[in-house]
C-alpha cells in the first residue's frame, strides 16, 4: 500500500499492476463488495479480489482478519450482508453450500470434520458426486448403482493409496490421528473431482512428520490441474508452496503479491505487528507510567474520601496504568492460532 519498493509492480499472474484487489490474467473466482457483519462488527469487507486459476493461492492474515468467514461466505456456509462473487463465470452469491460444492468448489474445515463412525472407505465414497444410489428409491435397487459404486471404490482406493491411508481403509475414521484425519478430509474432497480446492488451515494440529507429505499433496493438486486456495498461519508453508498470497486484515484485503516479497510489504507488516510496532515506547513507559500511577493513586484517594465510610472499589482505577503497555504489545503473532 504505502511502500511497494520491494514488491515488483508486475507479475505474470497479474493483469496490470500488482496491489490489493488487482486483476488476474485468468481468474477462477472473482468477488466484489462482499460484506459480512455480525452485529456491529464488520468481519469481512472485501472490495474486490480475484483468485488465479491453476495456481496455489494463500490467504493469510492475523487472527480475526476474517479469512475463515470469507471462506464460509464463498462456499455458501454463511450468507453475506451484501456482495457478489462468481466461480468460473457463474454467480455463486447466495447459492446454498451443497450446490456450491457440486459446481466444483470443495472445501475442508479448520477443525477437521471426519465422519467418526463411518469407515475411512465410507468417508471417501461419500465424496463421490452424482451417485445414483443416493436417491431414496434407487437406493433400494442395488443393480442400479452397483457398477457406479464399484468404480467409486476403485477411485477411492487409488486416492487412499496416494495419501497413504490404504492400510486404514476399513477402520473407523474416529480411530485416525489428527494428521491422518486432515489427509482423509483432503482425499475425500478430491473424490468429488473439484476444480477449486479450498483448504482451511490444512497444517493446523498436524505433527511435523506429516507436514512435508501434506505439502507435497497440496502441490500435487496443482499438478493435477486444480486450483488451490488455502488459509494458513504457518509462513513456512505459505512461502514453500504458494504461488500467490492475499493478505487480509480487519476484514479487508490489504495486500497481494508473490510469496517471496509479500512479507516486506508495509501493509502486511502493519497488519501483523501493528502500525506502531517500531515506535520506541521505552521513554514513555519510564516517565509516564510513574505519572499515571501517581494520577491513579490520587484519584483513588479522592474516591475513598468521597465515599466516606464505604469502602471504595479500588479496581476501578487500576486498569489505567496498564493501558499503554497493552497498546505497545503486538496484537497477534502469526504463528498463534485460535482454537
Amino acid at each position: 500500500m504505502s511502500d511497494t519498493t520491494t514488491t515488483p509492480r508486475t507479475h505474470p499472474l497479474v493483469d496490470g499492476e500488482v496491489g490489493p484487489g488487482c486483476k488476474k490474467v485468468d481468474p477462477i473466482v472473482v468477488a466484489d463488495g462482499v460484506v459480512r457483519q455480525f452485529g456491529g462488527l464488520t468481519a469481512v469487507d472485501v472490495a474486490h479480489v480475484e483468485i488465479p486459476r491453476g495456481h496455489i493461492t494463500a490467504l493469510i492474515g492475523p487472527n480475526g482478519a476474517g479469512k475463515t468467514t470469507f471462506f464460509n461466505l464463498l462456499t455458501g456456509f454463511d450468507r453475506p450482508n451484501q456482495g457478489q462473487w462468481s466461480f468460473e463465470g457463474s454467480s455463486l452469491a447466495r447459492v446454498p453450500s451443497h450446490k456450491v460444492a457440486r459446481k466444483g468448489m470443495v472445501r475442508t474445515f479448520q477443525l477437521t470434520k471426519s465422519l467418526g463412525r463411518l469407515t475411512v472407505l465410507q468417508n471417501m465414497l461419500l465424496g463421490a458426486r452424482d451417485q445414483r444410489g443416493e436417491g431414496l428409491f434407487a437406493a433400494l435397487l442395488k443393480p442400479l448403482w452397483k457398477a457406479q459404486e464399484a468404480a467409486n471404490v476403485e477411485r477411492a482406493d487409488q486416492l487412499l493409496a496416494r495419501f497413504k491411508l490404504d492400510a486404514k481403509r476399513e477402520d473407523y475414521a474416529a480411530s485416525l490421528s489428527g494428521g491422518q484425519r486432515k489427509l482423509l478430509e483432503m482425499a475425500r474432497a478430491l473424490m468429488s473431482e473439484p476444480t477449486l480446492v479450498m483448504l482451511d488451515e490444512p497444517m493446523a494440529g498436524v505433527n511435523p512428520a506429516l507436514t512435508q507429505s501434506l505439502l507435497d499433496h497440496v502441490k500435487g493438486l496443482k499438478d493435477d490441474g486444480m486450483t488451490v486456495l488455502f488459509v494458513e498461519h504457518d509462513m513456512h508453508m505459505v512461502r514453500h508452496i504458494s504461488d500467490w498470497v492475499i493478505v487480509m486484515a480487519e476484514g479487508k484485503v490489504v495486500a497481494e503479491g508473490p510469496p517471496e516479497t509479500i512479507m516486506q510489504d508495509q501493509a502486511v507488516v502493519d497488519a501483523y505487528l501493528g502500525a506502531h510496532h517500531d515506535t520506541d515506547l521505552g521513554t514513555l513507559t519510564n516517565q509516564q507510567v510513574a505519572q499515571i500511577h501517581e494520577e491513579a493513586d490520587a484519584e483513588r484517594d479522592a474516591e475513598l474520601e468521597a465515599d466516606g465510610i464505604e469502602a471504595g472499589d479500588e479496581p476501578a482505577a487500576t486498569p489505567e496504568p496498564e493501558a499503554p503497555a497493552a497498546e505497545a504489545a503486538p496484537e497477534q503473532r502469526p504463528e498463534e492460532e485460535q482454537r
Binding site: S97, H98, A101, R117, L125, Q131, A189
Partner: peptide, 24 residues
C-alpha cells in the same frame, strides 16, 4: 447398505462435512 444410507449416516456424524461434499 446403499449410498443413500451412507449419506444419512454421514449426516448423523457431521452435517456440515456432508454439505461440503455437495449433498442436500
Amino acid at each position: 447398505r446403499s449410498p443413500w444410507g451412507r449419506v444419512i449416516k454421514g449426516i448423523r456424524e457431521d452435517e456440515d462435512a456432508v454439505r461440503s461434499l455437495g449433498k442436500n
